[in-house]
Design a protein around this nucleic acid. Structure first.
Lengths: 218, 218
DNA sequence: ATCCATGAAATACAGCGTACGGTAAGGATG
DNA sequence: CATCCTTACCGTACGCTGTATTTCATGGAT
């Protein structure tokens, strides 16, 4: 069985999942596949095309979201699959928004998203749809990026609070004790208990409510 | 006059502005400063700390936003300064959301943002503030990233439409002609005339309206 | 039996971050 | 005055990166 773009992408994804994008290199992928480094260039122009391949492979998983009859349910399904994918493949969030996603599966996801969003009450014409899509995508990209970043720092500083205090703590504590950042200090002290998934969902519905022009029910 | 962290950061910003983050390297910065590459490591642990320095230098510019009496005006001023900074230093958007921004100026901006947002009608307690801040930051990061990415592709494919047709055109046109992405096709064809700044402002107010629970007035 | 195309490998190059060791000047201390 | 120690500075070297180029082997067609 010869090499293929799919097999290369799969190997690259395996490595990136394990060691991040920094741990990814042509030589490591080739090693994983048991071939010489240059073999990959028979299937891919350069590594940025390889990254595009990896991204679209993830979009393929996202595209499997089942469409609902209600636009909002469809949208939520897509968005949550995207979040799951970003948390499963953290490198995905590093690439999010960094280059245009034009692969076939990315386009399919974009199509489903746009189609669902076009049914929302607030969007009446193409311009509305364009803007709403932009707002949703922007929120999604930013939210996933920050959530992954928080995960990484939480992981690297250690699961327990003592290690965190030791590494990031001194600098931040000193900074907050200057009294120049009272609101931030309150956020750090009192606001650390919020669940990430819940916050994500809350903000997502807030944004959708803003798009559809709905009033907050609470 | 000896070297300094500020001078190194300024040189690095100059290079990154001109040639992007890929065109940035220890040797080039040192060359710009007329010193040996290893000199930098007397002032900086590694290049990721250098990136943090650069980011905080940009936040220093953003922090100069004048506070208004109205929370919304204050917020808009900060956000617009951030957008201006991201468009002036495109590499800034590459770093946005990719690591925690804990520099003194970044903290100052975060403080101003949080203080302003805490005055918004919709936010009643710290949890509300935490969430609202997360939503705003997520939108900001995602919106700036995609806007910069669009700028880059528009620039690289050429200002005129013919060059765009020649490079990205064939693949995308072929894809859209398959009929599998009708909504995306409509967006690409009919929705390309929207102004980026206007879209940004529109979506920003949409989000803020969603946070404060205000109804759309149109 | 010879030629040629095709698949695979090896080699090479410029550039990267950075570890390490060494040098020259100047101010403090004996 | 002589010594020391700090500070600013420089050069070399290592392992790694993406990728261009060149070589090699092999198997089918003529």
């Amino acid at each position: 069985m010869p090499l293929s773009r799919a097999k290369i992408a799969a190997a690259a994804i395996r490595i990136a999942d394990a060691h991040g994008l920094d741990g990814l290199s042509v030589r490591k992928i080739a090693g994983e596949l048991g071939v010489g480094p240059m073999r990959l260039y028979d299937y891919v122009i350069n590594i940025s095309e390889l990254l595009d391949l990896m991204v679209d492979a993830v979009y393929a998983q996202i595209a499997e979201a089942a469409p609902h009859s209600e636009w909002r349910a469809t949208l939520l399904a897509i968005v949550h699959r995207t979040r799951d994918a970003a948390l499963a493949h953290e490198w995905f969030s590093d690439l999010l928004g960094g280059r245009p996603h034009l692969g076939p599966h990315a386009l399919a996801v974009g199509e489903s998203t746009a189609a669902a969003l076009s049914q929302a009450p607030g969007v009446r014409n193409i311009d509305d749809l364009q803007r709403a899509l932009g707002a949703l995508n922007a929120f999604l990209i930013g939210a996933l990026r920050t959530e992954v970043t928080e995960r990484r720092t939480a992981r690297s500083t250690g699961a327990d609070v003592t290690a965190w205090q030791a590494s990031r703590g001194p600098y931040l504590t000193r900074m907050l004790e200057t009294g120049r950042y009272p609101t931030v200090a309150r956020l750090v002290i009192d606001g650390a208990h919020l669940d990430a998934a819940e916050t994500f969902n809350h903000n997502l519905t807030t944004l959708l409510d803003g798009i559809t022009g709905r009033v907050k029910d609470s």
